[in-house]
Write a protein that binds this DNA or RNA. Structure first.
Lengths: 185, 185
DNA sequence: TGACATTGATTAGGTTCCTAATAATTAGGT
DNA sequence: ACCTAATTATTAGGAACCTAATCAATGTCA
């Protein structure tokens, strides 16, 4: 149905790491458990989202590309730009556009100015598809979030933002060192 | 590097759904935003985790399978059991075991009692690999979680649990109806 | 102008996931 | 005993991601 990354349904992994406690001051049961729960929740959410999308005959990649074409009016819609916005490689965009073009949801238009470049455009069929799917997609994600009240949503957003900031730091630091010191994290 | 599901780096998607507000009482800006942030954080976390694992020459699927073989001492280690524990299909396990066996981390042992069945066993090489990788993996996930204090971790765990419960409900409900009513969510 | 690097998109090949179909073995019912 | 069911693992084929290599067009600059 989708790609659940082989994460554990019954995450039995955290105790494995506790042996390292002496070397890692921040490492305790709560740290391990929090990390793994976060990974697990993310995995399950992504899996279910993809499963829902599958019932519409689409998936994350394609759905998101269509959404971007419909609503990201800033910037161009070249594969390069789309890849940047989506956070995937250009090669991935090429593949997705191939599929969407085959299905008639999208078309490639040559750029008259720069002959290397291509503009990806949503077709009428693509538009209709999005309109058709939107209510069901709304129903799905509404039903996830409604389990939290306004306070809880706010709390969650604050916590997620902290984590995202940290992920950004780690990612940058990792990207920097990866070019110099091999895999010292 | 990994599979970031083509989620938006700059999630511009939530406004798209607000038009539906009239039909969905729980749908407001905060609901959309919360959902998308959750999806995004999950995606980024999974992506970075996979990227870290890549520097060790492994990935989620393989790493997790090795972990399960080392620590899930309950139950057997047949492909069927491993698939169940990992939450993926048996076919996926077959593929992962193929790769791990090729690399010498794992071996298939025929079951003398049930000739259909196979036991997957960790080799010495596999053990050594896990030992080697563990400190680096600890360093990575410690550095994610240490951005939250004990209170915040607790808060987050509570919220994640609520969401997981809801995901479970949706998933069950979805699975039930999928066999009867076609795709009414 | 001509060599060289840069920048678009694509292609080729690999991974991890899926579903559906297949093959072999075991279990159950009459 | 035998036919059918169920169960085990695998294969085949497809999707969305990746990296690295390729190819065409553009920019740079001596």
């Amino acid at each position: 149905m989708r790609e659940p990354v082989t994460l554990l349904k019954a995450l039995p992994r955290y105790d494995v790491f506790l042996e390292e406690t002496k070397d890692f001051p921040h490492l305790d049961a709560s740290a391990c458990y929090t990390f793994l729960q976060l990974l697990k929740t993310g995995d399950e959410l992504l899996a279910l989202d993809n499963q829902i999308l599958s019932t519409f005959g689409t998936r994350h990649g394609r759905f998101n590309l269509l959404m971007m074409l419909k609503h990201c009016t800033v910037g161009t819609t070249t594969p390069a730009d789309l890849a940047e916005k989506a956070g995937v490689t250009r090669a991935t965009i090429t593949g997705l556009v191939d599929g969407l073009e085959r299905d008639g949801f999208v078309e490639r238009c040559p750029d008259p100015v720069n002959r290397r470049s291509v503009q990806v455009k949503l077709t009428a069929t693509g538009q209709e598809f999005l309109e058709k799917v939107r209510p069901d997609y709304c129903r799905w994600f509404t039903s996830v979030v409604e389990t939290l009240n306004q306070d809880e949503r706010q709390q969650l957003l604050v916590l997620l933002e902290k984590i995202q900031i940290r992920l950004g730091e780690i990612s940058n630091q990792y990207r920097r060192t990866a070019n110099q010191i091999p895999a010292q994290l």
